[in-house]
Structures are given as C-alpha cells and as structure tokens.
Amino acid sequence: MDIGVTQDLSVLALVTTASVGVKMVMGVLLVASFVSWWHIFLKWFDLRRANKMAVAFEQAFWNGADLNQLYQGITRERERNGEMERIFEAGFREFMKLKNQPGTDAAAMTESARRAMRAAYQREMDALESHVSFLATVGSVSVYVGLFGTVWGIMNAFRSLANVAQTTLANIGPGIAEALVTTAMGLFAAIPAVIAYNHYTHDIDRLANRFDSFIEEFSNILQRQAHKK
C-alpha cells in the first residue's frame, strides 16, 4: 500500500494488490460462483425440458392412447424419454410381468406396479434434485466466505497502520476497498444461487406433485385393468 499522489483503485488493481489470504478467498469465491452459475444454467435447461416432456407425455397419455402401444413406443426410443415416461415404463413393465404370470392377485399386481413406479419416481427425483443443494450451499456460505475475506483484509489494513505515524483515510482506504471486494464477490455468488435455489425447489416440487398424481391415477387405471381380466 503506497500512499502516492495517484491511487489506482480500479478493480484489477485492487485484486492484484490484495494479500495472499484475501486472494485465496477470492479464488474460492470465484470458483464457487462459476460452478453455481454453471449449475444454475444446467438445472434451468433440465427443468424446462422435464416440464415440457411431462406436459407432452400427459397429453399423449390422456388422449386415450392404447397403453401397450405407448409402452412399445417408449421402450423403442429410450434416448428421448422423460421422467414420466420412465415412471410409466417401470410401472407398466412390472404390471405386464405379473399379468403374464398365471394366478396372481389383482390387488398384488397393482401394488407391485405402484412400488416399481415409486422406485422410479425416487430415482427421477434424485436426479432432478441433484446439485440444487449445491446452490443452497453457495447461497448461504459464500456470503460468509466473502465476509471472512473482508475481515482478513481489514485486519491486514489495520496492521499495516502500525508503521505509519500519521493515520489518514488514505492509509486505510485502499485496504478496506480491497477487503470489500471479497464481500462483493461473495454476494455476487450468493444472490443468484439463492434465487435459483428457491425457484428450482419450487419447480421440482411441482414436478414431484405431477409425478405423484400421475402414479396415483395410473395405479387406478392398472387396477381397473387387473380386475377387467
């Protein structure tokens, strides 16, 4: 910290003149920000796609299509399947297996299919919720990490004052500005992460409700089919 006539207070200068501890904090926050933003975008694309596919499948399902045909189509094109397709596939496969076995109880058949669907639902939900917790972590922790960097920087700024006979605002100003950069970075990482986390958990809850209701309705259909036989 030199107290020259011209103080370079550009952000780049603040970052490059920072102490090692502050630089490390900055690095951690930068990585956290990058990863959280990456997941924000990934999750955004993923949830949009899941929502679209769920709508499309529900349309196809409730349009009164033949369940066997639907199942054949889904097993043929596994690459283009969504979450709901996979839940349907798991339940219907289990139901067909039991149906082909002679002497199985209708209640047991639907119960078994329902369990298979529950398991598929859990897997899908797990995949959907992956990395959302990371956003929550970044959102809550990066503020504190930034604050830690600021405290560290201010400590350094005040320690460097020990050698200065006359203390002016010009002596501590750059140190505090440099320290506050980490808080700014922490907030920059935290704010979008928190917003995305809240938004995505809400979206995932809605999807989960959708899957749940689909499982219940499909169980009813399967039960009817089991009794029909």
Binding site: W38, H39, F41, L42, F45, D46, R49, R86, A127
Partner: peptide, 12 residues
Amino acid sequence: RSGNPAPRRGLA
C-alpha cells in the same frame, strides 16, 4: 439421461 447432455453443458 436426457437427449444430448454435452451441448447443453457447453452452453451452460
């Protein structure tokens, strides 16, 4: 498990 994850990652 969705269609093509690699381009999406690049975009992200």
